[in-house]
C-alpha cells in the first residue's frame, strides 16, 4: 500500500497541544468557547472548528499506580473508510497519491448520522450552518506541495512522524516491540488498517473510549 502515513508515538507526547493549535492555525478554524472542567482537555470535543484534540485521561492502573495518558485524536484515514459507506458520487474521496481521505463540500448532501456511525472512531462532525461534514484533511494540500502536515511539523517531542506508509508501519511495529519490554500492554493500533497509527503504552480504553474504535 503506497502513499503516506503518520506515526503517533504517545509515549513521547507531553500534551503540549502544539499539534492541536497548529491544526487550527493552518486550517484557519475559529476559536471555540471553552470552560474549566477540571481537565486540561479543551475544547470538550471535536467540531467543525476543531479537527484535532488532545485527550487527557487520568486514573489508577491495575498495578495501583496513577496514570495520565495523552491521546491526540484525529481522523485515522482508514484504508477502507467506513464513513464512505453512504457515498454515492464523490462526496468523500481518497487521494490515491497520498492516501488521504478527503471530505469535499458535497458532503453536505450526505446523511451525517449514517456517516458518523460508519466511522469506528467517532470523528466526522457537521458544520451547523453549511451542513458540510468536516474532519482532519491529512493536510492534503500541504502534503501535495512538499510540506509536512501542520501537526507533525509542530510536534516538539518527535511523538508525531510522517513518511512513506511502509516505513511508518515498520516504525510503528518496531516501537511497539521496544515499548513491550517495559510496558507489556504496549500496542500499535491496527497499522494494517489505518494511516494514522497510534502506539500506546497501555490498554487503549485507558486513553480514550474510541482510541481503538467503538
Amino acid at each position: 500500500m503506497s502513499g503516506y502515513s503518520i506515526l503517533v508515538d504517545t509515549s513521547k507526547c507531553t500534551a503540549c497541544r502544539g499539534c492541536q493549535i497548529a491544526c487550527k492555525e493552518w486550517n484557519q478554524l475559529a476559536g471555540t468557547a471553552t470552560k474549566n472542567t477540571g481537565s486540561y482537555e479543551n475544547p470538550k470535543d471535536l467540531s467543525s472548528d476543531t479537527y484535532k484534540i488532545v485527550r487527557f485521561a487520568e486514573g489508577q492502573g491495575a498495578n495501583g499506580k496513577a496514570f495520565w495518558h495523552f491521546f491526540t485524536e484525529q481522523c485515522r484515514h482508514c484504508l477502507s473508510p467506513g464513513c464512505m459507506a453512504e457515498v454515492e458520487e464523490d462526496e468523500i474521496v481518497v487521494d490515491e497519491k497520498t492516501g488521504a481521505v478527503v471530505y469535499t463540500p458535497k458532503t453536505k448532501d450526505l446523511d451525517f448520522k449514517a456517516t458518523l456511525e460508519g466511522c469506528p472512531y467517532d470523528i466526522p462532525r457537521q458544520d451547523a450552518k453549511t451542513k458540510v461534514l468536516t474532519k482532519c484533511t491529512f493536510c492534503n494540500d500541504r502534503v501535495g506541495n512538499g510540506m509536512l502536515p501542520a501537526c507533525v511539523k509542530a510536534c516538539p517531542t518527535g511523538a508525531m512522524t510522517f513518511g512513506k506508509r511502509d516505513e511508518i508501519v515498520a516504525a510503528a511495529k518496531k516501537r511497539e516491540a521496544e515499548l513491550k519490554k517495559d510496558f507489556p500492554k504496549a500496542v500499535a493500533l491496527t497499522p494494517d488498517d489505518v494511516r494514522v497509527i497510534y502506539v500506546l503504552k497501555d490498554d487503549p480504553k485507558t486513553y480514550w473510549k474510541y482510541a481503538a474504535g467503538r
Partner: peptide
C-alpha cells in the same frame, strides 16, 4: 508526489 495540488490531480470537481 509532484508539484501542484494533489487534490486537483484527482480529476474531479471538489
Amino acid at each position: 508526489v509532484g508539484a501542484g495540488l494533489a487534490l486537483s490531480s484527482l480529476g474531479i470537481d471538489l
